[in-house]
């Protein structure tokens, strides 16, 4: 008796998740924003070990970007881009809050890529931000920017 009930509950959960998934897919078709339905959470596949879960919908670029961000950037900028990584408190000036919508909007993608590529000193900011141009490929820079831009968008719009 109990197992039947359990099964039923499970099915209900499954249905709901399927329905949600379907809704989001419909949105993906009609919306003009780049929201698509890749909800992917665990990224500790490569023993990054720091991944938390952000359950918003990710595109391929953002997914790749998340992996790169978690590995290289999150130590200072924090998992959610608030500039509160564990390494941040020893830094002066503090790492940039990447979830500041106003501030992030003032940059074009190219400028953001340049900042990551050349580091702080390349764009006349604090040299504490290293330059990642030697480590990350062109593609990877684009991915990480695609992911970083997610922080500055209030999550309500991603339903």
């Amino acid at each position: 008796m109990r197992s039947i009930k359990m099964k039923r509950d499970l099915l209900i959960v499954f249905y709901i998740s399927m329905i949600l998934f379907n809704c989001s897919r419909e949105n993906g078709l009609s919306q003009t924003s780049s929201a698509s339905s890749d909800s992917v959470k665990s990224l500790d596949a490569l023993d990054v070990g720091l991944a938390t879960t952000i359950s918003i919908h990710f595109t391929y670029e953002q997914r790749q970007g998340k992996y790169i961000y978690t590995k290289y950037c999150s130590v200072c900028h924090g998992m959610e881009g608030k500039g509160d990584g564990f390494n941040a408190f020893s830094l002066d000036p503090k790492p940039r809050d990447l979830s500041n919508e106003q501030y992030m909007k003032s940059f074009t993608d190219d400028r953001l890529v340049e900042t990551v590529r050349e580091g702080g000193r390349g764009v006349n900011r604090s040299p504490l931000m290293p330059s990642w141009g030697g480590r990350l490929t062109k593609d990877e820079l684009l991915y990480v920017i695609a992911y970083v831009k997610k922080f500055a968008v209030s999550t309500d719009t991603h339903k």
Binding site: V75, C76, F86, N87, S90, L91, P127, L128, M129
Partner: peptide
């Protein structure tokens, strides 16, 4: 200290990062 900001990740004499 100036150009490459190594201190953001490495510590010397108790100053710098923990990465």
């Amino acid at each position: 200290s100036e150009k490459y900001g190594c201190g953001s990740c490495h510590q010397i004499n108790g100053k710098g990062g923990f990465v």
